[in-house]
Structures are given as C-alpha cells and as structure tokens.
C-alpha cells in the first residue's frame, strides 16, 4: 500500500458541530479558529452531502443523534472525518460514536491542547479508512468477476489448446490493451460469446487469417497489437489508436 500523505494543515476547513444547546463551544470554536477552521452547526447543512476535503464533523455523544443524518445507507464510513466528543463514558453513548464511525475523540470538557491532535488523527484516520474502503470495494468487484475469468480461461484452454497460464496471460494482455479490468473484459467475452466463444475469438497469430467476433462492429487485435479483421484503416477515426478499439 502506498504510504498516505498526512494532512497537517486544516486551514479553510469547516467544522460542523452536533451538540445540545447547553454545549459550551467556546474553547472548540476559539481553538479551531486558530487552526483556520470555522465552526457551524451540523443541522444547518445537509449531513449527507459533506466534502471530506473540507468538512470535519464534531458529535457530542451525550446529545441524541440519528446516525442516518450522516451515514449513507450501507456505508461503513461517514462522508467526512468525524470526531466524537465524550462526556459520559457509558457504552450506550460510546456506541453512538462507534456507529457513526468516529476516527478520533475529544474528552469533555474540551481542552484546547487536545484539538489539533484530534483533528490530525480524525482527518488522517478517515483518509486511511477511505482508502481501505475503496480497496475493499475494488476487491469485491474483482471477486465477483473471478468466475468469468475462470470461464474464459477454461474456454481458451479447451478450444485453443493453450495452457491455463498462456490463456490467463492472453486475457490479461487483451484487457490491458483495451484498458478495462480483467474481470469486466472476461465477463463481456463470456456474455458476447453466446455459446460460440471462443471459437470466434481472434486468432493467436495474424497469419491465421482474419477473424471477427460475431456481432463485433470494431476491429480486434492480435497479440502484437496488429489489427486484424475490418477493412484496414477505413473505420479508424482521427486520433483513435488501437487501444481505444474496445470490444466491451
């Protein structure tokens, strides 16, 4: 994993406070202003339309809060870094903060000397978890597409006499050339194959003769990137290189 650049200057940030009317925001507001961060009430903005590059939410765990105000359905993370403020250390209150995915906390009464550290950890932990969230989604997507990869490999092995390693390498190369994910590429191949795939797959070698996928309007490419099929350059638009000649 590439090391994440840590954000350490929060100037132009917007603090969004969720707290009861009796919450003493003076220390928080004064210290945030020294850090270049403004403070407004969360109820004055749309909690689901926050910008994680600008907004930092402060939630008082002692004040009733509906996590749905902040969390999109099914999301594991709030849309912006969220810092919990803990007064009563009872599990029910702490559960609320856990439910909204706080990534740092401040003990009440708020002490000025803890606020920069809470911002630093809250924002950077949120960034880190966001990256992990994206990676997880990416893994899920690839995981779901794996069965198409297996199908495509088996088909190439069965009908083209390739080894499984050669089949996989071929699919990978072709998907990279078309700049789409291997899983998406294989899913499209298997779906378009309509039972004839991969007999109609472009030949391994150009000299094997032109070969077109049924219903494919675009030319395809052999392993060396030479185009096969179609009518030479006739259908090649200006500036359109072979990489853009997508099948999927």
């Amino acid at each position: 994993m590439t090391p994440q650049r840590l954000i350490q200057n929060f100037k132009h940030g917007r603090g969004l406070l969720w707290a009861g009317p009796d919450f003493n925001a003076e220390t928080l507001e004064r210290t945030l202003s020294k850090l270049g961060v403004s403070l407004t009430r969360l109820e004055h903005v749309d909690g689901t339309a926050l910008d994680h590059n600008r907004d930092i939410v402060f939630i008082d765990g002692d004040h009733a809060f509906d996590p749905a105000l902040l969390m999109r359905a099914g999301a594991a993370l709030p849309p912006a870094p969220t810092i919990g403020m803990v007064g009563v250390e009872a599990p029910s209150r702490l559960k609320l903060l856990a439910d909204v995915g706080v990534t740092a906390f401040l003990r009440k009464p708020i002490q000025a000397a803890a606020i920069y550290a809470a911002l630093f950890l809250g924002v950077n932990n949120h960034g880190r978890m966001r990256v992990m969230d994206q990676r997880l989604a990416d893994h899920d997507r690839r995981h779901h597409g794996r069965r198409f990869v297996i199908k495509a490999v088996i088909a190439l092995v069965q009908y083209h006499g390739l080894s499984d390693d050669e089949a996989y390498a071929r699919l990978r190369r072709e998907s990279m050339r078309q700049r789409i994910g291997l899983e998406e590429f294989c899913a499209a191949l298997v779906a378009d194959g309509s039972g004839t795939f991969p007999a109609e797959w472009p030949a391994l070698h150009a000299e094997d003769g032109p070969s077109r996928h049924p219903g494919d309007k675009h030319e395809t490419h052999d392993d060396d990137g030479r185009r096969s099929g179609g009518s030479a350059d006739a259908d090649r638009g200006p500036g359109r290189g072979p990489d853009q000649a997508g099948r999927a």
Binding site: N9, K11, K34
Partner: peptide, 12 residues
C-alpha cells in the same frame, strides 16, 4: 504561525 497554517501547505 504556531500551527503553520499560513506558511505550510495542506500536506506540510
């Protein structure tokens, strides 16, 4: 500028 909010970028 004790927190370097005016003299450093977002990444420091």
């Amino acid at each position: 500028d004790p927190y370097l909010i005016r003299t450093a970028s977002r990444l420091g």
